[in-house]
């Protein structure tokens, strides 16, 4: 990992340089005041002071709906996919940790071709954050699994880069940078909640019953979670005899999630909340024993009935227990 410094006034030129590596996207505010990641056609729209986006950056790697296969005359083939190169600017450390987690899910074993291609063409530029009322990783973080990371300093930014992509970005921006010594420890959170004891899902904590009674199964907590990735596969025939198979986001809070012909393996809301607890804080095979909650706080913020499953975790302050992991390249 290497460091450099650039002045606040060079931010615009730096962003223009990043455009050389792909479509530039970053946090913007909608008319309704909701932050989202979107194309930065106009650099003036960039809001580096954003709290968090409603929809996490997973949408760039794992779109809500993706065509995976096509069939014609009954023969299935991979759908052609040619996503643009995208430079995603201004990603907070928790969202970077979430992408690192999704990488393990989709790339570690039997890499999924569509995800792998989108990932290859995504350049990540992280930026440090200010905690808000909902998020809960241990402290404001400076770093993460990305190609380039920016931490505000006096009149400018300290910039860290890692890996081949990071080096290429820094090289292209060389004229804008000056030498810098690393100031402070650049580190990244990995899990805001340490792995929990799976037996906690059967604890007699009264909140389990309360949550099961109040949850409306809207699924917002899962849609907004940067590490939620349950998906469904759907087939759509077309009129000419061919058709497509799509991958779509699914949601573990929906009653259909565990349904089969003639039975439902998670028929009650309590069953489904327990499932969510397990997946978020305990991990499913092959990531058993790994928490996937990065502490962004989105689930709590969007829940219409204020459910926060974290209240069911063991230990006084779960977040304090995780040592920060060092900055590392994204791939």
């Amino acid at each position: 990992m290497e460091h450099a410094y650039f002045k606040q006034t060079q931010l615009g030129p730096l962003l223009e340089t990043l455009r050389l590596f792909g479509e530039l996207h970053g946090p913007v505010l909608s008319e309704a005041g909701v932050a989202s990641f979107a194309a930065l056609d106009d650099l003036g729209a960039l809001r580096l002071d954003y709290g968090k986006t409603r929809i996490p950056p997973k949408k760039y790697l794992f779109p809500f709906r993706e065509e995976l296969l096509q069939y014609r005359d009954g023969i299935y083939r991979q759908s052609p996919l040619d996503p643009p190169n995208i430079v995603l600017f201004g990603v907070h450390p928790c969202d970077l940790a979430a992408i690192a987690y999704l990488d393990r899910v989709f790339l570690a074993e039997r890499p999924e071709p569509a995800y792998a291609l989108r990932r290859e063409r995504l350049t990540l530029v992280g930026v440090s954050c200010e905690p808000d009322d909902f998020c809960f990783c241990s402290q404001p973080q400076e770093g993460g699994a990305c190609d380039l990371f920016l931490a505000p300093r006096k009149d400018g930014f300290q910039l860290a880069f890692a890996g081949a992509k990071g080096a290429a970005l820094a090289e292209a921006a060389r004229g804008l940078l000056s030498e810098a010594r690393p100031e402070g420890e650049m580190s990244a959170p990995f899990r805001a909640i340490p792995a929990q004891d799976p037996q906690l899902r059967f604890s007699d904590h009264p909140l389990w019953q309360k949550f099961a009674l109040t949850c409306v199964s809207c699924g917002a907590c899962s849609v907004c979670c940067p590490t939620c990735y349950c998906f469904d596969l759907r087939e759509y025939p077309s009129l000419d005899g061919g058709g497509t198979r799509l991958r779509e986001w699914d949601n573990c809070l929906f009653a259909t999630h565990g349904e089969v012909a003639g039975a439902n393996f998670r028929a009650s809301r309590l069953d489904r909340l327990r499932y969510r607890f397990l997946h978020k804080y305990c991990g499913f095979s092959p990531l058993e024993g790994m928490s996937s909650c990065v502490g962004c706080g989105r689930c709590k913020e969007v829940c219409p009935v204020d459910i926060d499953l974290r209240e069911l975790c063991g230990g006084p302050d779960a977040a304090a227990a995780v040592p920060p992991a060092p900055l590392r390249p994204a791939s």
Binding site: E112, F231, L278, G283, F284
Partner: peptide
Amino acid sequence: GRCCHCALGQK
């Protein structure tokens, strides 16, 4: 092992 529909406990 990806879509997570078939979970039983953590398996």
